[in-house]
């Protein structure tokens, strides 16, 4: 039987937030406000690797570590494209991934946004013009935003998401 008093007196297992980054908080709060206004409080992102060197995946993954913890800003990475508002593409589009990439995009409900993350996704990077790739993400998707970098740091990706929110907000405003 658990004693209620023990629960109260027991040392808490949470720890203080490791760092406090003013810039990050400011960007995060802006993103949150925009997500609240445009996306009904949560932005669902589906990450799609079409041929990256895995550094960009690592940086996107890092957005979920306790330093950034982007879920508190309303950003979630979802398991299925059917749940996604945004497709985050990393890497140049390889021939071997092209079909799967198209299917992923087609499975997303509209309206949908595509963000190219990293140099290779932006314009094909070092692989542009070679036999194994089609080129950057725009070869098969309408790309709404490009976040360059080799790879872009988590803070840069977050700044990119903020820029996308601004565009989505403008779009919504223009709607009749």
């Amino acid at each position: 039987m658990v004693n209620a008093l023990t629960c109260l007196l027991k040392k808490k297992v949470t720890e203080d937030y490791p760092v406090h980054d003013e810039n990050l908080e400011a960007i995060g709060l802006k993103i949150k406000a925009d997500i609240n206004a445009v996306f009904g409080r949560s932005l669902a992102i589906r990450e799609l690797d079409t041929g990256s060197d895995n550094a960009t995946e690592i940086e996107i993954n890092n957005l979920n570590n306790p330093f950034y913890d982007v879920e508190r800003f309303g950003i979630t990475f979802v398991a299925s494209p059917r749940h996604a508002d945004v497709l985050m593409v990393t890497g140049a589009i390889t021939h071997n991934m092209a079909t799967a990439a198209r299917k992923t995009y087609d499975a997303m409900p509209s309206p949908k946004f595509v963000v190219a993350v990293g140099d290779d996704a932006c314009n094909g990077g070092i692989y542009a013009g070679t036999y194994a790739v089609l080129g950057g993400a725009e070869k098969i998707f309408p790309v709404d935003l490009k976040i360059p970098g080799n790879p872009p740091a988590p803070a840069a990706i977050l700044a990119g998401i903020l820029a996308l929110m601004k565009r989505a907000k403008d779009m919504k405003r223009r709607e009749p």
Partner: peptide, 11 residues
Amino acid sequence: MFYKHRGIEKL
């Protein structure tokens, strides 16, 4: 595997 084959060696 090899979905990410991007032709590194030829490149």
